[in-house]
Design a protein around this nucleic acid. Sequence first.
RNA 1: GCCAGGGUGGGGUAGUUGGUUAUCCUAGAGGACUGUGGAUCCUCCGACCCGGGUUCGAAUCUCGGCCCUGGCCCCA
Length: 410
Amino acid sequence: MLQKPRGTRDFLPEEMEARRSVEATMREVGRRWGYREVCTPEFEDLDLFTLRSGPGIIEEMYVFEDKGGRKLALRPEITAAVVRMYVNEAKVAPKPIRWCYFADCFRYERPQKGRYRQFWQFGVELIGADSAAADAEVIMVAAGMLKATGVTFELKVGHLSFMKNLVKDLDPILQRRVMAHLDKKDFDGLSATLSETGKSDLCRALTDLVACRTLDEAFAIAGDIPDKERVRQTIALLDASGLAYTLNFGIARGLDYYTGTVFEAFAENLGAENQILGGGTYRLAQLFGGDDVASCGFAIGFDRVMVALGDIPRKKDLVVAVICSDEGRARALAVAQAFRDAGIRTETDLSGRGIGAQVAHAAKSADFVVIVGKREAESGEVTIKDLQSGEQATVPLDVAVAKVAAHGAR
RNA sequence: GCCAGGGUGGGGUAGUUGGUUAUCCUAGAGGACUGUGGAUCCUCCGACCCGGGUUCGAAUCUCGGCCCUGGCCCCA
């Protein structure tokens, strides 16, 4: 038997309904903040991704050549494509541009809990607003979106200027190593790296920076940073909004294209892969031939949110089963249509079984059965039975529809 | 790419000193039952992940692969 490719999943209706419901929640939060949905190609020129993230990521991507010899890749993330789209299509659009997206991405990695080779991201990009208010808005949207789904999460907000200011005199390669250590909270590694390069004096300050949880402490440790006022304002706005978050100046966010504000969110019950959101400010447009425009965005690991939410009880559709004998079959179609026109999920018999067998079958999944047999075909009425209460009546069709419509979702 | 533990009908399972037709539950289909309930009874459907090796004989032992689960790495 054929198997699905490693790291991919099939979704049955129950799971799809849960996913669509959460997706709609996120999209609605985006809509209320003015973020309109965009869509970019499933695959792009390989260069788009290596320009952003470096050639090292080729190993982690689905890369292929098309029949014209073009080097292409299934998108491993969406931000690069959205920025490319901005440069191609929307450079002159009025700023700021508020966009969001929900799309699947592909990475050739070892699957584990919350990590798949095909996975979905819900993301937001705010392009062309270079202010504390912009940074704060994106963080508030991020938190609002997660909160609306009902997931329990911890939000961490940081800024790269502090760390960068402390390591600015180091060799760039060393800077990167140091920041990687800090991001992972690998203080032994940090200490070793610094002492082997004769910079042990920095170790204390960097360690303290990661541990500190207030702006004043951070300024005291890192000294005067160029973005001081911007950071103060951003944090002041977050505080004014009543958002729950912790400051963390140890966040370095992997690849080094983030320019200032960075933030991450983590959920419980997710094992090793517990980060459900990541974002920050960046300047990528010029990489793709555009202007040097300030941007801020984030992406939610949608599948991880679904794992973290677990099996949430969901409202189920109310189901009407229309049952008929051969004499009633023609009229049953019209009867079913009347229920559908009222917005009710309605399923008709396809088996030609006896009435008894049909009722037994319907009782497994439906809330109401509507019987259109010989008697109803002659009288012009229908027999409706509430499968929960057992109550049954023979009434005109519009009365039956009204009865079910009044019942509401279960 | 690395490490650990796994893989028996659609789902869940029993089954090692290697030995007849592979157990049970559930789901599905049909019937008892052609105008009324998920019960009950009967019948049917349906599996040893793939390949090589050892053996008279492999679900069982062995090797390789694939896949799953979790972890390392990475995390855009």
